[in-house]
Amino acid sequence: MLVIAYLVYIFLPIALLLIGSFGETWTNTFLPTGFTLRWYLDVWNDPSFRRAFIVSLEVAVSTCVIVTALAVPLAYALTRSMGKIAGLAGRFLAIMPIAAPPAVLAFGYILIFSTDAMPYLGTTWLIIAAHVVSTLPYMFQTLVADIRHLHLDKLELAAESLGASFGQRFFHIILPSLQHSIFSGLVVVSAISIGEFQITNLIAGFLNRTYPVVLLQSFYGATGFACSTTMVLLLLACASAAGSALTARSASRAKKH
């Protein structure tokens, strides 16, 4: 009962967004009147939304690639050397995205990257860097949990005693074992990157605004248009989450067999 009530609380706003995005007009009534696909066509035909959509995808994909390349060696190194520094770094990574509010971090970017030495404010690369920094901890935590759970250290010792060099161990044992967690971590990373608004809104240039940044403008327009633009973002996020759930399930199945 309680869980159902809670699920209603979760799904009511989404349901209203969905209904609203197909509604012709919606002013001062419970639900909209009329059915139309007009709003979605409007989004499709709007050049600024199209551009933002593409920027968002570019940023998300680049973020995924860079985060993987950074997080896998990092997680491996920190779990292998259980020294004090490694422990501290892990804890720091766990709390850093929350301890530093996004607006503050963005302000830091404005201060540092608008200097003559580093005039990167407004570039897409800086947006990607911001997304990398804010998603790295999530990927890191997913990987560390999996490395501990799979007892990779033991497997690596075994491979070492069987004659495998570091490279062989990494590509034969570690990477295949981590592929599920890398993938499910990536889906969270891409979902966060696609939805990120608070930092990007302050550091993006006019031409490389991401989808959420442009989305905010539509809130001041027609309800139907706002609903359909929001639905587009929501569908992107849902696709990511569903992907994550599916990989997690197939991973747990693989473990059972």
Partner: peptide
């Protein structure tokens, strides 16, 4: 699900509610 949502989705959903 909401964890991966942008805060903006939540915001507009709440305006509708």
């Amino acid at each position: 699900l909401p964890l991966t949502f942008s805060g903006l989705i939540v915001a507009y959903g709440f305006i509708l509610c």
